[in-house]
């Protein structure tokens, strides 16, 4: 293809219409997020009229004083923390087992790790619910954690396995030759190498768990995580201001970790967060 080249960089220059489409797409992607931020400061109580009537910080104080909001935030943080720890352990083990050796059934195991995020969440949700019911388990805190950990493992696995593949195996052998046993090698040689990938995977798992809704509605029973609280809230128009504030808060809690994960794995061949 004959590209127009700019004189100084030699980089091909995009036609204006293409550049316009690309940036237009970005605007489209960020527009609803911007609206959520704007409406969090809206003075109006029960409608979404535009242009908005005035600016206020009142609803932040009101949301902070609501016990149901605080309970939901606390529950979501606890669930995400437990699911993340489980996912980090299981994901690292799976990555350590699968990155180098070729053995029978390896592809099937990799496939199995991916299924929970490839299948629609509703299937995972109702499958877990059906199984819990058969076992006579009442939905509670731990059933939520089990559901979340199931689809969080692949986040950690993807990140850690990519890093494992980049560590030369000779490092491990050298450590063993110098007298370290397997555990010491893991702690002193392998762990420092995979640390940032593990952390990035953990952060992604946390973010994924924190705002998961579909599986959670099946496994939560009467518990209200923050996304479930928000969903219930949408049928209560009178509460709109508090809902707007919480929506913005959820947005912040999930985007900050994503940026963090991105910078932790930047410059490596697989960047965290490129697949959800």
């Amino acid at each position: 293809m004959r590209f127009k080249r700019s004189v100084d960089t030699g980089q091909p220059r995009a036609p204006h219409w293409l550049k316009g489409l690309a940036y237009g797409g970005l605007v489209f992607l960020h527009f609803p997020i911007l609206m959520i931020v704007i409406y969090a400061f809206n003075t109006e109580e029960s409608a979404f009229s535009f242009p908005i009537k005035g600016w206020t910080l009142r609803w932040f104080a009101e949301a902070a004083a609501r016990q149901d909001v605080l309970d939901a935030v606390w529950l979501s943080l606890k669930v995400a923390a437990c699911a993340t720890v489980l996912a980090m352990i299981l994901g690292t083990m799976a990555a350590a087992a699968l990155y180098r050796r070729v053995f029978f059934g390896k592809d099937a195991i990799t496939m199995m790790l991916i299924i929970p995020i490839a299948l629609p969440g509703i299937i995972t949700g109702i499958a877990l619910l059906a199984a819990f019911k058969m076992l006579g388990l009442e939905p509670n805190f731990w059933t939520i954690v089990i559901g979340h950990a199931t689809f969080c493992v692949v986040m950690v696995y993807n990140n850690v396995v990519a890093r494992f593949r980049r560590i030369p195996h000779s490092l491990v052998e050298a450590s063993m030759d110098l007298g370290a046993d397997g555990f010491m090698t893991f702690r002193r040689v392998v762990l420092p190498q995979i640390a940032t990938a593990l952390l990035a995977g953990g952060i992604l798992a946390f973010a994924l768990s924190f705002d998961e809704l579909i599986v959670t509605t099946f496994t939560a029973g009467h518990e209200k995580t923050l996304p479930i609280w928000l969903l219930n809230q949408l049928t209560r128009p009178r509460d709109a201001p508090v809902t707007n504030v919480v929506a913005m808060l959820i947005m912040l809690i999930t985007t900050v970790p994503i940026l963090l994960a991105y910078y932790l794995t930047k410059g490596t061949e697989s960047v965290a967060g490129s697949s959800k």
């Binding site: 409406y39 994924l208 924190f210 996304p227 707007n244 959820i250 967060g273």
Partner: peptide, 20 residues
Amino acid sequence: AVMLPMWASYIVKAYGWTVI
């Protein structure tokens, strides 16, 4: 800029559209 909206909370994005 593509990754952030992808990861931003699903229910919040859907809610944003009901507002829009």
